[in-house]
Design a protein around this nucleic acid. Sequence first.
DNA 1: TCTGGGGTCCTAGGACCC
DNA 2: TCTGGGGTCCTAGGACCC
Length: 416
Amino acid sequence: MIALVDCNNFYASCERIFKPHLDKKPIAVLSNNDGCVIARSNESKSLGLKMGEPIFKKRYLVDKHNIHLFSSNFALYGDISKRVFDIVGNNVPSYEIYSIDEAFLDFSGIKDPYSYALHIREKVKRWTGIPISIGISYTKTLSKVAGYIAKKSRNGISYLKDKNEINEVLRSLPLDEIWGIGIRYAIRMKKYGIHTAADLLECDETWIRKMMNVVGLRMVRELKCIPHFNLNTNRNMKKSICTSRSFAIEIKEYSRMSEYISMFSSRCSEKLRLEKACARSISVFMYTNRFKPKVKQYSGYFSMNFHTATSDTIIITKLAIKCLKKIFRSGYSYKKAGIILSDIIPKNQVQLNLFETTDRNKTDKLMKTIDRVNGNMGRDILKLSSSGINNKWKIGKEKLSPCYTTRWEDILHIRV
DNA sequence: TCTGGGGTCCTAGGACCC
DNA sequence: TCTGGGGTCCTAGGACCC
């Protein structure tokens, strides 16, 4: 048996922990630049606020119902997530953290899965304030189905064990609620008269494979209780690491863009070092605002390889700037840019180059020092001058909540 | 006026090899 | 008049997830 733990309205719930007076009030969390809705409380959902919707289109709704808006505070959400899964993990033999708000638990050998899930749910709520729902069934895909049912249930738990019960659930499960069926597949399938999960199970497997390739086929078989996706309990090394941003104010000049690319490189290299890994290849991309079809559009993308896999900010930044020079065209207004590090390997498996001229031990120490100083004293206390001297990230976060759990100055004060 | 960020996997097709 | 068979590697693009 596999259990799926899913934090309800996660980002919204995180904000609510520290603002209990917003209980039962509609709230929503916005993406960077306070652009799109990326999380909603149940109250906001029932008011018709959609996921991913640009908030400026819904101003009237926000004003009319006094929806409380928050800028995204990932330091807070990341920390709360860790606390939730520490608790959850302590209650099962093994588990896989699937995303910031979801984990699959190994529930094999648990005598009464339903009561046990209830117990975990109450503990998490009491210790962190985060409401979770838990779906339990035979495969990962079915546990996602159970999770969907759990969210609608009274006590947040669903245990799908009986085959007849599963079939009944699948008969009323809309296609696009299935894990692995997105908007494209759903539209394509509906053309063939397939509207529910049960419809899908009646299709010929060769046909399924042709339509949705092998991943889709595995998913369908999982719905038939045949496991194909194992619990992945050891955290794999990332295969690519990306740092990208949309700009609140579009960028025209090369000099500004190169400062941003340099900043992205620093941030991305830090993430890479945190993974204890090195990258062999880097890509830089940038594009104009696709929502303004009347202005000249352009998008550029360019990749290069390092002589030797590296996590050195200086080397990475230099190559990023080289890539940038290949794709930058003046005369355009750029809305978004970013860098991707890929071909990632563990640091201790780097194949050294016979003609290496840099002293890796020395630069290693330098990077460690930079990371330690910035870790203790604040981001970008030490940085490359190529990322600009007076630059603040031009990212709108007007409604940012404090980092209650990760920054000393932001800890709540209580007067007794 | 205003539209996010960060990932994964698979496949077809081109280029190449003998 | 007639033009094989078997393989690898890489990349772009398409799908998905949260």
